[in-house]
């Protein structure tokens, strides 16, 4: 019943055939329900016009491969720009968030230091209430950040949960390391960068993933703060052209997105290609970090 056992423990009876069949069917069904929509979307985005037409919509069975939809998307237009915006916001935002979070997590990892308690309390208190959408909007507006990419980064830059996770991890490191370095005259900065961070790659990867996914997926912030649709991140494009189904080729907004127009991929393939573009970074980064979830980085930290 646990990871401890690679083989069935001797005391456990072998489940009956129907029980095993039922369990395996359930597991397979769960996997299919999650993977099937992704499969259909990816396949349709890669299908030539003939396949989309003969399927009468989404393609279930591969009938040739065409990269036309992606060529159209990345021919320089609304989608290309949105991808660059999202990538930029994600990269800069994750960097800002990680730096601020790591520094504060370390700065608060030593009980008894000056103002440790009130500062920690100030961080934890943010768990209990949200400032509210309207006052936050007015603040961002008064700071002149409307239509600035910083409005997508600064309001969500520090997440108290991530900070607490990091801090708990730092506090669980053996304290002798820091102490002996301090005796040797090392500054806190040196201890953090040379000793603590190299031991904290897992938690940094997990927290970095949380932040990166948050920035990449951010949708509502952009609805609130970005009025200029030439600055829209990918999620808003995804909504307008796929979820709301606005025609890409006929839209004046996207006029130059599909250059040539006539030789372009079917609208549905382009739409599905946008979905795939929104999907891909998450599915690529995720496996690199996933192993840390099962190692209990988060759970251990939350318990701490």
């Amino acid at each position: 019943m646990s990871t401890l056992f690679k083989d069935r423990p001797v005391w456990a009876e072998r489940p009956s055939l129907p029980a095993r069949a039922g369990k395996n069917t359930a597991l397979a069904a769960i996997a299919v329900v999650i993977i099937f929509p992704l499969y259909v979307v990816i396949l349709t985005s890669l299908s030539p016009a003939s396949a989309v037409n003969s399927a009468g919509g989404l393609v279930l069975v591969p009938q040739g491969i065409s990269l036309q939809a992606y060529a159209d998307l990345f021919s320089g237009g609304v989608v290309t720009r949105a991808v660059l915006v999202s990538l930029g916001v994600t990269a800069v935002g994750t960097l800002v968030s990680l730096v601020a979070t790591i520094l504060a997590a370390y700065g608060l990892s030593q009980p008894g230091s000056l103002w440790h308690r009130p500062l920690l309390f100030g961080v934890l208190l943010t768990f209990l209430f949200a400032p509210g959408m309207i006052p936050l909007y007015l603040l961002v507006s008064n700071l002149g950040l409307i239509d600035s990419y910083w409005s997508l980064i600064l309001p969500t830059a520090v997440n108290a949960f991530n900070l607490v996770v990091m801090r708990a991890f730092f506090m669980n490191l053996p304290k002798e390391i820091g102490d002996s370095a301090r005796v040797d005259g090392a500054s806190e900065w040196t201890i953090l960068t040379r000793l603590v961070l190299p031991m904290s790659k897992g938690v940094t990867a997990v927290v970095g993933l949380f932040y990166a996914v948050g920035y990449w997926n951010a949708f509502f912030n952009a609805i609130l703060y970005i009025n200029d649709n030439s600055k829209w991140p990918l999620q808003l494009i995804l909504r307008q052209y796929v979820q709301q189904g606005q025609q890409l080729s006929s839209s004046s907004v996207i006029g130059d997105a599909v250059q040539g127009g006539t030789a372009s991929a079917p609208n549905l393939a382009i739409q599905m290609a946008i979905v795939v573009v929104a999907l891909v970074p998450v599915t690529f980064i995720y496996p690199l970090v996933q192993k840390h979830f099962t190692k209990g980085v988060i759970i251990g930290a939350v318990k701490g």
């Binding site: 370390y106 700065g107 000056l114 953090l192």
Partner: peptide
Amino acid sequence: WQLLLMTLPAI
């Protein structure tokens, strides 16, 4: 003071 300085950006 170094620890305090470190908490400054997040705080």
